[in-house]
């Protein structure tokens, strides 16, 4: 049961992002794709089944308001988690940048599919810019996460700067 708690916290984080954090953290229309990022990070560090179930539930939490398309988005999220997990076990992703590339591609694919199906009536160029800017922004957040996780950014180092 205890091992479920972090996943529950991730789900609440995704819900908070859907409700108000997404608006607060958006920069010039670029929004962090936190549900996809969380699924990709889980797929890089956890088991296959953990990844797939987490992707399933976070898909429900993030896309429950999308009506008939909810099921497809849940399946898409699970597929991205599943695929990323298998990329991770087949390819050497030791370096931060290789993981960053995986995260960028995963978010880009997810953004592209979601924007293409539910992106509204914007032109292709606008959708492309939103997909790309969202993927880049999310990758930057992932990069900071990897730096913290690798110990390259620490509280002591930050204090030493100031």
């Amino acid at each position: 049961m205890i091992r479920v708690i972090p996943f529950l916290l991730y789900l609440w984080l995704a819900a908070a992002h859907q409700v108000f954090l997404g608006d607060i953290t958006s920069i010039a229309g670029a929004v962090i794709n936190l549900p996809a990022l969380l699924v990709l990070l889980v797929s890089l560090y956890k088991s296959e089944l953990d990844t797939c179930w987490f992707a399933f539930f976070i898909g429900m939490v993030a896309y429950i308001g999308y009506g008939d398309a909810t099921g497809w988005y849940i399946l898409l999220m699970a597929a991205i988690g599943f695929g990323t997990y298998h990329v991770r076990v087949r390819i050497n992703l030791e370096s931060v940048y290789s993981r960053l590339v995986v995260v960028f591609i995963g978010v880009l694919v997810h953004n592209a599919v979601v924007m293409a199906t539910a992106g509204g009536d914007g032109s292709f160029a606008i959708l492309l810019v939103r997909v790309l800017s969202g993927a880049v922004y999310t990758s930057v957040v992932a990069w900071l996460f990897f730096l913290v996780k690798e110990g390259k950014i620490t509280y002591q180092k930050l204090r030493a700067i100031f």
Binding site: E48, L49, C52
Partner: peptide
């Protein structure tokens, strides 16, 4: 077949959302 059952359940549940929303 634990892995396959889990994956199958995920697909079935998702299909439930798709088929009978």
């Amino acid at each position: 077949h634990s892995r396959n059952i889990h994956l199958g359940l995920i697909v079935i549940f998702s299909a439930g959302f798709i088929a009978a929303p």
